[in-house]
């Protein structure tokens, strides 16, 4: 329990630090949103318009940095992340809100799937090392070493086209209205097959290799020999003794990967024009949309921290040595 409380305290502190940095860094950059808008128009804006923009973005109040910081924290507490420049006057939260489900659905599901498949294969590859299973390794290592954008482009070239069932881009057909009906869900699933497959193909190798190597390391432990000597079935030794211990390092890695899901994967979303957070961030960066960039970073930070916290909890449940009593 003490461990739990300490971890929780650590995460809250980290979150505060991240929020604070997220506030100060953009303000240390010279210029302000109005300047960037002026720059976008190449200065062809009259002075009245500039004035009204100043008022709109709250730049006319000339508050001190500290009072700005407090009102920023207050806004955050209300879930207000400001207004997106590019999608003006849409607030950042609603822009993120429309992108998040796509990212979570595609990247989240594939991350979990890749972890499960890779780890399971890794358990077998490590346990049956020296047999034909070893042949898996070079194949998956090769697949995961292909640059993703290339893999994505090749798969688009090979599997999509005028007469192909698989679409080459987007999250759903342009004509459809998003909703919870079979037609739309089926369409969205069809759009996700290719990106999902490419993500899994390129990331399974990493999990497999990590798990296999841990299995090999753990297999040399004395308690594995003891388990064999006890006459336990091979499967039991593999699962309860070897895999159970070999899994521990992968759990932390998985927590990390889950946290990064929210940020989307630029390349995936870029190659397949998938309407997720990654694509939004890419657009935001190219359009100097600071509130949106900040919003995305903040969401990613919170997600990484939350996922790590969950990984910590899982680790605590899996490894009794981390549970310090007293």
């Amino acid at each position: 329990m003490k461990y739990f409380a300490r971890r929780l305290g650590f995460y809250i502190l980290t979150l505060w630090a991240a929020i604070t940095i997220n506030f100060f860094i953009p303000r240390m950059i010279p210029g302000n949103p109005v300047d960037s808008l002026i720059a976008q128009r190449r200065g062809e804006i009259d002075s009245n318009a500039i004035k009204s923009l100043d008022i709109l973005f709250g730049l006319d109040k000339h508050q001190s940095l500290l009072s700005q910081y407090w009102s920023y924290l207050g806004q955050l507490a209300h879930g207000d992340l400001g207004i997106s420049f590019q999608n003006f006057p849409e607030p950042v939260t609603s822009v993120l809100g429309s992108a998040l489900p796509w990212t979570l659905g595609l990247i989240g599901t594939t991350t979990i799937l890749a972890f499960l498949i890779g780890t399971l294969l890794g358990v077998f590859a490590g346990w049956k090392r020296g047999t034909w299973v070893d042949g898996l390794l070079p194949v998956t290592t090769f697949l995961s070493s292909i640059p993703y954008f290339w893999l994505g482009l090749i798969s688009v070239t090979l599997f999509t086209g005028v007469d192909s069932w698989l679409p080459s881009s987007g999250g759903y057909d342009p004509g459809l209205v998003p909703g919870w009906d079979f037609g739309f869900i089926g369409n969205a699933l069809r759009h996700s097959i290719l990106p999902a497959a490419t993500i899994i193909i390129s990331s399974v190798g990493g999990w497999l290799l990590a798990m296999r190597n841990m299995m090999v390391t753990v297999s040399a432990e004395d308690y594995i020999t003891v388990a064999h000597a006890k006459g336990l079935s091979d499967r039991r030794v593999m699962t309860k003794y070897a895999a159970r211990n070999a899994l521990l390092p992968s759990v932390s890695g998985f927590g990390m990967a889950l946290g990064l899901v929210v940020g989307g994967t630029f390349l995936v979303e870029y190659v397949f024009s998938y309407p997720g957070v990654g694509l939004q961030l890419l657009n935001a960066i190219s359009g100097h949309d600071y509130p949106l960039i900040q919003g995305v970073f903040l969401t990613v930070t919170v997600a990484v921290l939350a996922a790590n916290f969950l990984a910590d909890l899982a680790y605590m449940a899996l490894d009794p040595r981390t549970r310090k009593e007293g």
């Binding site: 432990e221 004395d222 000597a229 006459g231 336990l232 159970r244 490894d319």
Partner: peptide, 29 residues
Amino acid sequence: TPGELRAFRWSQLSIVFQGAMNSLNPVTT
């Protein structure tokens, strides 16, 4: 055979291993 060996192990012949520190599975009771 592997099956016979499994049945034989521990019920007829057991072993106390060198290095008790690492002979127990650290994650189970």
